[in-house]
Amino acid sequence: MIEIGRNIFALIAFGSAVIFGIGGIIGLFRFPDAYSRLQAGALCGTTAVISIFIGSLILAPTWAIAARIILLLFFFLVSSPTGAHIVARFAWNSDIQPWRPADQRRTGSDDRSKE
């Protein structure tokens, strides 16, 4: 009985991981510039990997594995935005202009203003 419940919860977690993963990969190809690709890829990728961690945590065979997965989850919550920030900062410092939709292009003033 417990086994069936574990399988059902793991199936939900892995199913959401598949959906978010597909969304992230489509986002990597659909958007036109590096910042937007980073938004889609980093956000959906992080959520997919965290869903995979939760699913593996439900299915973990021993306590040693479960404790390490919990540790991994908390470290991943710190390290994933740090990696995304490093990439975004590299793009910002190498003078890449952010993309804008066609009807918005002349309204705002300077995005990349150096003070």
Binding site: G23, Y35, R100
Partner: peptide, 18 residues
């Protein structure tokens, strides 16, 4: 926010700005 981002990936109406 990830669910919101999924919607944006599929319908494509976004407005990125600094």
């Amino acid at each position: 926010s990830s669910i919101k981002m999924l919607g944006a990936v599929f319908h494509g109406r976004v407005n990125p700005r600094i």
